[in-house]
């Protein structure tokens, strides 16, 4: 298995405040990795730094290519889809337009309709609502839409920021099932940031625990889940 994303000595800043202090980790191609930690530990910041949405220093390499200094849209165009916190839904556009936007940077225009159909197969509820304004969807449906929109890029890597946030437990189960399926069938590498550690550890193979901008623990998901101390002190369940 080859390494897809390597992050070395990543430091990120909000204005004068440093939020990440030399983060290092890597992702294997085809894997599901989770980044765990409490509120404010720097999970979201890490994802934002990968897409160059905030000021950061350090080395991020995607398939051997450094992302330093690249604009967000160009990072995305390399095949890195980012489902942001709050989902980033274009609320005043229809569901279908949201999906088309996901594929807006693709050159192979003629394959897009097929991909939209594929998304409707993954998420039947979106098909029912495809002409509806995205803002009228429920939270769970919007999260499905956000994931589907990200997949429309045909990404090599998908970054998910708290996909379970604000959703009912049943819907979360559903969503994570679909994520696993996408990883298996479409070979999309996934990096998921979660506060719901239990759930994320079921999905992921590898886990990193992050605290105040540093990685404090890493291992297979099973190791982390089985370690009583980590669970109590960092993951809180």
């Amino acid at each position: 298995m080859s390494t897809m994303l390597t992050i070395k000595d990543l430091r990120a800043y909000y204005g004068q405040v440093q939020a990440l202090h030399g983060l290092e980790f890597s992702l294997n191609e085809g894997s599901v990795t989770t980044l765990l930690g409490a509120n404010g530990a720097g999970k979201t910041t890490t994802l934002r730094a990968i897409c160059n949405m905030i000021r950061s220093t350090g080395n991020i390499e995607f398939e051997g290519k450094p992302l330093t200094g690249m604009s967000t849209e160009n990072v995305v165009r390399l095949g890195i889809a980012h489902v942001p916190q709050g989902r980033g839904t274009f609320t005043n556009m229809t569901v279908e337009e949201n999906l088309q936007l996901g594929a807006i940077s693709r050159k192979d225009v003629k394959n897009i309709p097929d991909d939209i159909e594929r998304m409707y197969a993954h998420f039947p509820v979106l098909k029912q609502r495809h002409t509806q304004q995205a803002g009228t969807l429920s939270g769970g449906e919007q999260q499905m839409l956000a994931v589907a929109r990200a997949l429309m890029l045909r990404p090599r890597l998908m970054l998910l920021d708290e996909p379970s946030f604000g959703l009912a437990p049943l819907i979360v189960r559903d969503l994570f099932g679909i994520l696993a399926k996408i990883n298996r069938e479409d070979r999309v590498t996934i990096l998921v940031v979660e506060q719901n550690a239990q759930l994320a550890l079921e999905l992921a193979e590898t886990a990193y625990v992050i605290e105040t901008g540093r990685i404090v623990m890493s291992g297979t998901a099973k190791e982390i889940a089985d370690n009583e101390d980590i669970r109590k002190s960092y993951l809180g369940y």
Partner: peptide
């Protein structure tokens, strides 16, 4: 999140 309101 309200649908008609936009927050900036």
């Amino acid at each position: 999140m309200s649908t008609v309101q936009e927050s900036v």
